Amino acid sequence: MTPTDKSAEKFERQMNLLAALSDTVQGIRAIDIQQRVPGYNADHDSFRRTFERDKKDLLSLGVPIEVVAGATADLTAYRVDKSKYELPDPGLESDELAALHLALETVTVGSSPGDMARAMWRLGGVVDAASTNPVGVPVGELTEIPSDASLVPLFRAVMERRVVSFTYESTSGTSLRSVEPWHLDFKRGRWNLTAFDLERNEQRNFRLDRVRSEVEMADAGSQSHGVPATPTAQAEPWEFGDNEPVVISVKFDAEVSEFARQSLASCPVSDQADGGATFEVPVTNWPAFRSFVLSFLDHAEILAPPESRASLSQWLEAIGGDVHG
C-alpha cells in the first residue's frame, strides 16, 4: 500500500469514528467501536493502539471527545456532543451565500460538485430562485456569475506572486503576453485582470474572456515589480486596448453630469457655467468609449480631438445609411 493509500485509509477510518461518536447520546464502548467502525483490526492490541492514535488526532483537531466512565474499564464509553462540535447556523443572507458559492466554484481542492453542495447545505443551504429562503436546491442555481478557465490559475498567480504567460486577443491583434498579475475584479459581467506587462513595461488591464490559451505560470515569487500600495481603480472598457492612449475631451449636459462624474471619477474635469462638465478621458479602446458616449444620447458631445469627432460622425452616418438604405 502506498503512503497516499495509507493516508486515505486513515482519513476514512477517522471520519467513520467521528460519525459513530457523534451518533450516540449514551456513548459507545471501545469493543463496539472495534466491531462497528470500518478500518479497525480484529486483533485487540492492534485495535487499541490505532484507536488511541485516532482519538489523539481528533482531539488535536478540536473534536471534543468525551469519556463516559463505566463501572469497569470495559464499560467505559466515548461520545461527541454535537452541540459542542457542529457548526451552528450562521444565519447567512442570500448575498453572503452567493459569495461563498462563488468561492467554492472558483477554488476547489479535490471536491466534487456533491461535496460542494453538501458544504453549502451545512452553511445554510442555497438560494431558490423563487424564494429568498435557503433551501436544498442545486448549488448551480444560486448565481449566474460566470467562471473562466484562466480564473483559477490567475488567482493563484496573484496570491503566490507568479509571472504568467498567455495568448491574448486585443484590438490590435493576437499576441503572447508575459505579465505580473496584481489583482482580479468582476465588473459589468466580465472578469478583468490588472497586471504589469513585462514587454510594455507598464500597468495594463486584460479581459479574461480574451485570453486565447492556457495560462503558463512561472515559479512562486518570480514577480519583480511591487504591487502598488494604493489599489488602482477598476478599469473601464475603454481602457482595454493596446493602442497609445488618446485624450478625448467630452462635455456632458447638466442633466447627466452627476452620473458622468461617477463613471469618470479619475479623469480631470472642468465645471461649466450651465451646470455641465467637461472631462479629459484617456482612451485606448475607441469603440468601447464611443458606445459609452452614445449612451448619453444628445446630452454628451465630443469636443476634441477633431479626429474623434469626425470618426463618431462618420460612424453614425454609416449606421443611418444602413438603416434607411
Rank of each mutant, 00 (worst) to 15 (best):
V152P: 00
T2W: 05
T230I: 11
R122I: 08
G27H: 01
D322E: 11
E160G: 03
M15F: 14
L264H: 06
Q272W: 04
F155E: 05
L58G: 04
M120W: 00
R156T: 13
E12S: 11
G125L: 10
V126L: 09
G136C: 13
V68I: 14
D89L: 09
I28Y: 00
Y85P: 00
V68C: 12
S266G: 03
H101Y: 02
V109Q: 07
A117M: 02
N285E: 10
W315R: 08
E244S: 11
S7E: 07
T171C: 06
A129F: 14
Q223N: 06
S266L: 13
E236L: 13
P90Q: 09
D32C: 06
V250G: 01
I65R: 06
E239S: 12
P237I: 11
V246Y: 03
V137S: 13
A19S: 12
G39R: 03
F47M: 07
E9Q: 12
L97H: 03
S131F: 05
F292E: 08
Q262L: 07
L154A: 09
S224I: 03
Q262D: 10
S150A: 15
S266T: 15
T76N: 05
I319N: 03
P228R: 13
C267V: 02
Q272K: 08
L208P: 01
G241S: 11
L154Y: 03
S249M: 05
H324T: 15
F289W: 02
G189F: 04
E239N: 09
W121Q: 13
S213G: 10
A42T: 15
E216M: 12
A77C: 13
K251R: 15
A233C: 11
P90W: 04
S291E: 10
Y168W: 04
Y40T: 03
R156Y: 10
S178K: 11
G39S: 11
V25M: 11
L92Y: 07
A99I: 08
L316I: 14
G226C: 05
